[in-house]
Design a protein around this nucleic acid. Structure first.
Lengths: 191, 191
DNA sequence: CTCCTATAGCGACATACTGTCTCGCAAAAA
DNA sequence: TTTTTGCGAGACAGTATGTCGCTATAGGAG
C-alpha cells in the first residue's frame, strides 16, 4: 500500500500507520529492540523513509504507538469479560486468566515494551485504563467482602498486572492457569 | 581515568569498565534508553570512543553488563538475608521485602532493563541465580508445610519476582511493605 | 637494569542512520 | 475543469557506527 489510494484518505492513513506499526514490531522480534531503525521500518513497510516521519517523530514513538494499540486491543477483550454477570471474584479471576493467556500468547519473541516506554513519566493511557479496569473489579469485591481491604485497591491492581507478566514465556497453559490462581490468593480476603 | 594507569592493569580495566557502565546508566536516566549511544557513553566516561569498543561490542552489551552487575549486587545482599536463621516463611518475607525496597529505591528514573535484555533467549545469569535463591526458600517452606504445594516452586519464584517489580515507582515505603505481604499471601499454604 | 612483547588508548576513515527540505502528483473541494 | 490540500519520495547535511593503524605503557625475560 505504498502508493495506491484505494479508499478514503483517512482510511489510507490508518492503513499506512498500521503497516508501520506491524513492520516495527516485526523488526523488534527478529533483530532486537536496539537495532530497530526508521530506515528499516520504512523498507519493511515498503514506503519511503521520509514518509514515516510524517507519521512518527522517532523509533520510540513508533514502538509506543504499537504498544498502545496492543494494550487497547487487549483492553477491549478484557472489558467484555469483566462486564459479564457474576460475582466480582469470579469475574476478576476470568479477567486475570484471560490476560495471562494473552501475555503468554506471544511469550518468547519480543520484550515487554511497557518497561521502556513510560519515559514520559506516566504509564501509557491504555495501560492505565487496564489498571483501572482491574481496580474497579477489586473495589467491588472489597465491598462485598471477597477481597482483602487492608491494602488499597490501586496497589492490588498494580500487583495483579505485574505478577501476571510472569505468564510471558511460561511453558504450559496449565502453568498460566496456576499463576492466575496464585495471584488471586494474594488479593483474597483473610490472607 | 582515561590515561593514567595508577594500579595494576587488571584493576585498571575493571575501573574503566565500571566507568563505562556508570556512564551508560547515567545517560539512560537522563536521556532515555533509545538515545544512548556509544559516542555518548565514551564522552561521559571521558575516554576515547574507540576504547569503548575494546570493552563492549555495542550499546546493548553495555546495558546488559550494567544490569548484570546490578542484579549481582542485589543478589549478594539478598543471599545474606536468606541465610539468616529462622523459618523459611520469615526468611522469604525478609528477602521479598528487601528486594521490593531495592526495586523501589531507584523507582521512577530508569526503566527495567531485564525486560529487553533477554534477547539472547534466556534471562541473565544473575537473574537466574536470584530466581534460584527464591525457589530454594520456597522449596524449603513447601517441605515444612508453610507454603502451598499445588504449584511448582519454580513458578512460584517467577511469580514472586515479577509481582515485586510493581514496587518500582510506588509512592510510599508502607506501600512496599504491603506489597510484600500480598505476595506472601499468594504463596502461603491453604490458599 | 634493560629490552621485548603484548596490549590499552586514541585519531581517522568509510559506511549507515537521522532529520529536514523541496518538489511532484493524486485526491478532495469549488 | 480548476484550485487546493497534503501525501510520498529523492536529496542533503549532520551524526553515530564500526574498524584499522599508530603510539606508548605495563609486565616479564634476559
Amino acid at each position: 500500500m505504498p502508493k495506491l489510494w484505494n479508499e478514503t484518505i483517512e482510511a489510507h492513513r490508518a492503513a499506512v500507520r498500521d503497516a508501520i506499526l506491524d513492520a516495527a514490531w516485526a523488526l523488534v522480534v527478529e533483530r532486537g529492540l536496539m537495532s530497530v531503525t526508521m530506515a528499516g521500518i520504512a523498507e519493511r513497510a515498503a514506503i519511503g523513509r521520509a514518509t514515516v516521519y510524517k507519521y512518527f517523530t522517532d523509533v520510540e514513538s513508533v514502538l509506543a504507538a504499537w504498544h498502545e494499540r496492543q494494550v487497547a486491543a487487549h483492553l477491549q477483550q478484557l472489558a467484555e469479560i469483566a462486564n459479564r454477570p457474576g460475582a466480582a471474584g469470579s469475574r476478576l479471576e476470568a479477567v486475570l486468566a484471560a490476560y495471562a493467556r494473552i501475555l503468554r500468547g506471544r511469550g518468547e519473541h519480543g520484550p515487554d515494551l511497557g518497561a521502556l516506554l513510560h519515559r514520559d513519566g506516566q504509564p501509557e493511557h491504555a495501560q492505565r485504563h487496564l489498571a483501572d479496569l482491574v481496580r474497579a473489579l477489586l473495589e467491588e469485591g472489597v465491598g462485598s467482602g471477597e477481597f482483602r481491604a487492608d491494602v488499597p485497591a490501586g496497589e492490588l491492581a498494580r500487583y495483579c498486572l505485574h505478577a501476571l507478566s510472569a505468564a510471558a514465556g511460561m511453558a504450559s497453559e496449565a502453568a498460566v492457569v496456576r499463576l492466575a490462581g496464585v495471584v488471586m490468593s494474594g488479593v483474597a480476603a483473610g490472607g
